[in-house]
Design a binder for these strands. Structure first.
Lengths: 114, 114
DNA sequence: ACCACTACACGGTATCACGGAGTACCGGCG
DNA sequence: CGCCGGTACTCCGTGATACCGTGTAGTGGT
């Protein structure tokens, strides 16, 4: 019954897009790593695991795209909440531009490719 | 005047998709590396260079997805023509399934992401 | 003879998603 | 009280991929 989905491994295809997805989620509301992972799983990115998301979050922080606030949880260890700053908002806009561009080219190739 | 396109660097986003694009092009007609590179450039993948395409072609050959035929050119050195075999046709179908899946998830995230 | 265009191959680099191990805080169970 | 499961974050190593420069080679034009 487990992941009997049509797709077995999106890993390589997610390169470059997963970071954008995380940015978009953070842009929607201030949130933290564990919740982002769950959110991604719900959205259909079923195989994305915590280690991957945390790597991305650390990278976002290192690149100065997010503002980080640590808050106690009551449900376990303290959480690190992430919110976009100006640079982050610009980056997420760039991401969507790139995605739009790429997906239009690919769809065109798929249609009139021959 | 230089590449004043809306997108500066698709490199990371192309990971996992470029190989599928090459497969699709080969599936359309038997062709060779140099021409595939030109075709990709025409299609909007402007920054894809020959070295990249050749590594993909070597990989496809190594993975037994293509049938290779060397033919003299008259326009330079001999060309290696690539055509899909059965495994290659299955692979390109899998690619489009994955692409469909991924792009639908991403578009959903973009719309109702919150 | 030189140069430009065509055409392919190779080696090294950077980036990214993944996976496992480790740490830590909390609540419920027997 | 001790153990386990769920929550939550960190670190490090691995594998896959696209990129880039360089080299090799064949053809034709001047």
């Amino acid at each position: 019954m487990e992941g009997a989905l049509a797709v077995d491994d999106l890993t390589e295809m997610l390169k470059g897009t997963l970071e954008g997805c995380v940015l978009e989620i953070i842009g929607g509301e201030e949130t933290y790593g564990y919740a982002i992972t769950r959110r991604l799983n719900e959205l259909g990115f079923a195989d994305v695991v915590e280690g991957t998301v945390y790597t991305i979050l650390l990278r976002l922080e290192r690149n100065g795209l997010v503002q980080v606030t640590k808050r106690p949880s009551g449900m376990g260890p303290p959480r690190k909440f992430y919110a976009l700053n100006n640079a982050g908002r610009e980056e997420v806009a760039r991401f969507w531009t790139k995605w739009e561009y790429l997906s239009s080219r690919i769809d065109k190739l798929k249609e009139g490719g021959r």
